[in-house]
Each structure stands twice: as C-alpha cells, then as structure tokens.
Design a protein around this nucleic acid. Structure first.
Lengths: 214, 214
DNA sequence: AAATATAGTGAACACTGTTTAGTAAAACCA
DNA sequence: TGGTTTTACTAAACAGTGTTCACTATATTT
C-alpha cells in the first residue's frame, strides 16, 4: 500500500527534475539565441552564455555536447521562422505567383535576419556526422516545398519546361546568391545605399522570374 | 673620393637588405599560401606558419600588421588566378558564347579551388577599412569585365533586353549561388556523387543561359 | 544515519591572435 | 679599432577561445 504512494511520490520528483532539467536547457538556448542575434555565431562564446545565465561554463556542457549543438537548435529555429513565412504563401492559388512571393520572402528573410541566414545557408555545416540524418531535414523540407511549387508551375505550363529539380536548384541558387553576396558585402562595389540595394535584389528577382515565365 | 665609393657601398647594402626583407615577406606568403590551400583560413594559425618557416610567431608581425593582411595577398592571388582564366576567353568572338564560358569557368574555379573561393566571395570581408580602396579592386575588375560582356550581348541583341547592371548582378548571383551552396554542402540533400553534382551545376547554368537568350 | 546519485564548478589543457620587453648581431661613426 | 646605434629576432606574456576533469556540496535513496 505505502509502496504505491511511495512510487508515485518518487515519480513526481523525477518528473519535476526532468522539467527542471529542460528548463535549464531552455534557459541556455534562450540566452544563446539572444547573444547570437546580437553578435553572430563566432563572437558568442560559451563563457558569454555562461556569464549571461550566471552559471559556470562547465555547466553548459552538462546540457550540450559542444558549442555546435547549441547552435544547431538555433539553426532549426531559423528554418522554423522561414518555414512560417513560407506557409503564409499557401493561400496564393497561382503557383507562379506563389513562386515569386517565395523568392521575395526569401530575400527579405535573408536581409532582415543575416545571422540566422548565415547559420542556415552560409556557415560551414556543423555537426557534420553527429546529427546528419536529422540535420538537414529542415532544409530539405523547404527545398521540397520549392520543388512542389515548381512542379505545379510546370503542370500548369506557367514556366518554360525543364527538369523540376534543376529548376528548383536554379531558383534557390539565384536567390541565395543575391542574399549571400549582399550579406557579405560583395555588392558594395557600385552605389548601394541600403534601401537601393534591397531594391536591386528585387529587380534581379523580377528579371529572373520574367525569364523563366512560359 | 672615398666617400663616393662608401656611399655606393652603403646603398648596395641597403638594397640587399631590402631584397632580403622582401624575400622573407615572400617566404611568409608562400608558406601561408601552402598551409591555406591545405587547410583553409581558420585552421591556418600564425603559429603554424611560424613553425613552417622556422621563425618565431612574433617575427611574422614585423612583416604583416595582422593575420588578415597575409590573407589579403592570398585573396588577391585568387583573383589573379580567376582573372587569368577569364582572359583566356577573350578569343571567343561571340559575347554570348563568351558569357556562357565565363559561367562555366567560374563554376569550375569555385569547385576546384574552394578555399580560394571562400576567401574571395564567401568569407566575411577582412580589412574592412584599412585597404578599403584597393581591397575590392580585383573583384570590381572581374565584375566590370562581366558587365562589358553583358553589354556586348545586349548591343548585339543576343540576350533579352534589360539593365546591364541588373543582368550582370543576376548572372553573378546565380553562379555564386550554385558554387557556394555546393562548396558548403547544401546540395547533398538528394543524390550527389561528386561527378553528378558538378554536372547538375552545369545543367543549371545551361538552364539559366537558355532563359536569358534573346 | 550512512551510502549514493546528481548538479555544478574551479582550475586546468591546448589552442588562438597579438604585444612587449629584452637580446644578440650587424651597421655605422669616430 | 672601439663605441654607439640600428636592425632582426624572439621568449614570454596577455586576453581570449572550446573543452575536460577532479572535486564539492546538495538531494535522494536505502
């Protein structure tokens, strides 16, 4: 009889402990995200995070195997954010219009969240082996979403014929090229007030989309 | 009388000293380039270079203000290399054919020299202020070469009309997107044997060029 | 009450880029 | 030739990085 209550009691404690553990993990992630968005990956050190949450640096290693593992969750946050903005575009019936808006959304995301973008698409891929299976799921999903939209465009003959994967790859490469050259200041050669530069990106996108139109 | 010879002698010594100084600078650059091409920027430390040339780390700072300054000359080497390969294409009369070959050359350069490519087009720009004037001259030249070729295509109505700067920006962004996603392993999602992947890049380029053709 | 499991940390390790004070040797001047 | 200055170099340190480990308190279990 007593043992039953005892067992329940023990389990309640264990539950609380697990909750606490998750809370502290969350604390680390939130601090890391905050610092990361302020200063980027390289400049956010484990000691910075430790100072911020008022724990010892060593404690962080009780919750994360390595620095990259912390930033892998931020990496995922980024994909969730971008995914959300893509989801909003589902309501656009015409797949070509949707494709155009996806492009605009992508450009906007990159320019407005350069640090997220860096982690998601520019940085040398961390966790090469470790979480390799799950690692690029987020990215794959987004890409598959693109492939589907492109396929719809092809079915409805809204764009010139071609292999949907090649086309998707091309679209992605194009917008990625725009964003990453912009983020890494390779466009500053000529003119380029900040406003102007975002306009140039949009004009380039428009040029690209006009060209693939059927 | 004697003084004349003495002055000549002194100057000869000074010349030799300057030669020596340049030699040692060159030694550092050669070692740095070697190590850089083996391991990339981040993994090449000042101490690595010092060990390699059998000098103290501090000595390197007598010849270069900071690590970035060493890699700025490698950065320039990269542009020279790419520029050489572009120059070979001058013999192609038809500007659109030339444009296509420029694209292929660019892709090939990026895939075959990922570390150079990284320094030239992906890495966060070093020397932000210091050599800002001269810093992107190399890159600007290459871009102006692109703009000229695009302009020729427009004049001869080989490609659809549009602003030459927007078109050039688009072409560059497109090939840069392909290369940078490729060398940062963002394409590994589907299939991708190494041979196959380079083929995909070329197919994408072909798709792009077909679309801008008049 | 004693034994054990858990959470957290100080201090260290092996690195990094960079600076500084000090040392030999070469060059200059008398 | 001898004394002074300039040059070339470096050992050691500074301040930072990611990461590990031996250790300590506290909480839980027996």
């Amino acid at each position: 009889m007593f043992t039953i209550f005892a067992v329940l009691f023990i389990m309640a404690i264990k539950d609380r402990k697990e909750r606490d553990k998750l809370d502290r993990r969350k604390l680390i992630i939130e601090s890391a995200t905050k610092l990361f968005l302020e200063q980027g990956y390289e400049k956010t050190s484990i000691r910075n995070i430790a100072d911020d949450i008022e724990y010892s640096p060593a404690t962080i290693y009780l919750y994360f195997k390595e620095k990259d593992e912390i930033f892998y969750v931020i990496h995922e946050q980024g994909f969730e954010l971008l995914g959300q903005q893509f989801t909003l575009l589902n309501q656009i019936q015409n797949p070509f219009d949707r494709l155009i808006e996806m492009g605009k959304t992508y450009l906007k995301f990159g320019v407005e969240n350069p640090d997220y973008y860096d982690l998601m698409f520019i940085m040398r891929a961390p966790l090469a082996e470790i979480e390799c299976h799950a690692n690029w799921d987020a990215g794959d999903n987004a890409f598959q979403y693109l492939v589907r939209t492109v396929s719809e465009c092809l079915e409805q003959q809204l764009i010139k014929t071609g292999d949907p994967h090649i086309i998707s790859m091309s679209v992605w490469s194009f917008v990625h090229g725009l964003v990453s050259l912009r983020i890494r200041d390779r466009f500053k050669s000529l003119n380029m007030d900040d406003d102007l530069s975002e306009n140039l990106l949009l004009q380039s996108l428009d040029y690209f989309m006009r060209n693939i139109k059927a």
